[in-house]
Amino acid sequence: MKAVVVGGGIGGLTAAIALRRTGHEVAVLERAPELREIGAGLSLAPNAMRALDAVGVGERVRKHSAPSEVTGTLRTSSGRYLRRFRAGRDEPLAAFHRAELHGALLAELPESVLHTGTEVTDPSEVDADVVVAADGVYSGLRRRLFPAAPAPGFRYTCWRGVTEPGAGPPVRGSFTMGRGAYFMIHPLPGDRSCWALGAAESTPGVTYPDEHAEVSRRVADWPAEARDLVAATRPEAVLHNDILDLDPLPAFTSGRVALLGDAAHAVPPDLGQGACQAIEDAVVLAASLRAASVGDALAAYDSARRPRAAYVTKQARGKAAADTSSAWWLHFLLAVTVPVMPASVIRRQASPLWDWAPPIF
């Protein structure tokens, strides 16, 4: 059948790869004049890497990643370590420069599949058996299909940056929690690092004349690693965005349209599952369309993905609230419990996310 993917981000490209692998004719329509990603970092957990393995691109994608120990290294803003990564006990994440992950996926598709400068907000404009709406948190297709659904909600604000090769200290990945803020670090290939400062904010859309100086001010009393990484980042490379998410939708499908990724279930990044869930969506959708009519396949996709997305949304919101909380008692509780928490408990907490298995292709 003919499938059109609206949106050329990580989820959309993965969907196009998976749909082509199952024998469908695919076109990717992207409203931007060129296909590219922003200069920031992200990580993929084991569930997403398994999904990429299922569609045959996992090994090629891994070449663009670095192992991050963020899952096992937690400290306070005073520099006290509550937990340190231990090989064999803790599982590293695969950390990427977002643009390089995007480029690796893009390289898997023929140029003839890609059509830039093409905006779609009405599925009736598209000649296809199935339309995949992968057009992001502000999805025009979602607004058309579910006009009563709430707009994206504001959670907190976040600055991100990537250091130049060799410019910052070597890092292995860590998460630092402070009152009302956190600082997350990943290593990247090429002797680079990426970082993110998330901070509680009551009002969305707040900006600063010098975003780099604002981040430097906020981490002035934090561990030297955070200060050094910010200092090693070019001011023009600092990105500042509000963190948004979506309330659960009544369905992820309507007619011949399937919503995917942030268009369906944008979540805060605190669980590291935003891109992971979009990749899961892509492989489940392609597997569902492999051997069923469009109607049955999309019903199966909705049934498989909506409950999981609702669970991830709930968990990510809870962690986002904790990560940016200024409540003294929460920080005291974490400081007391995390150092003595058994590895089995931490693994059990991650299991519902990381142990997901993709369909067999």
Rank of each mutant, 00 (worst) to 15 (best):
G318F: 02
W328G: 12
A286Q: 03
S303E: 14
A287H: 13
A304P: 01
V340L: 12
A327Q: 12
V340W: 10
R305D: 12
D323A: 14
A300F: 05
R347N: 05
A322D: 13
G295W: 00
G318R: 10
Q349A: 14
V338A: 14
Q315C: 13
R290H: 13
A327E: 15
R305C: 02
R348E: 05
D302Y: 04
R317F: 01
L330S: 11
P339F: 07
V312S: 07
Y311C: 04
S326P: 04
A300Y: 01
P339V: 12
R348H: 06
S344V: 07
W328Y: 08
T337K: 11
A343I: 02
R306S: 04
V312M: 08
V345H: 08
R305F: 01
T337F: 07
D296F: 04
R306F: 00
A316F: 01
A287G: 08
L333E: 07
H331G: 12
L285W: 05
W329S: 15
A304L: 13
A300S: 14
V340I: 15
A300D: 13
S325I: 07
L289H: 06
K314L: 11
K319V: 14
W328I: 06
V336W: 05
P307Q: 08
A287D: 14
D302N: 14
T324A: 11
T337I: 15
S326M: 05
A320D: 04
R308V: 10
D296N: 11
P307F: 06
A321G: 08
T324R: 02
A300L: 09
L298D: 07
P342Q: 04
A350G: 00
A299I: 05
R348G: 13
W329A: 15
D323T: 09
P352M: 11
L334T: 06
A322H: 10
G295E: 15
S288P: 02
Q349Y: 02
A316R: 00
R290N: 11
R306N: 01
T313C: 05
W329C: 06
A327K: 11
F332Q: 14
S326W: 03
A310N: 10
A320C: 10
R308K: 10
A297P: 06
V312H: 03
L333Y: 07
A297W: 02
P342V: 07
V294L: 07
L285S: 06
A310L: 01
P342D: 08
S303T: 14
S351H: 13
K319A: 13
F332R: 15
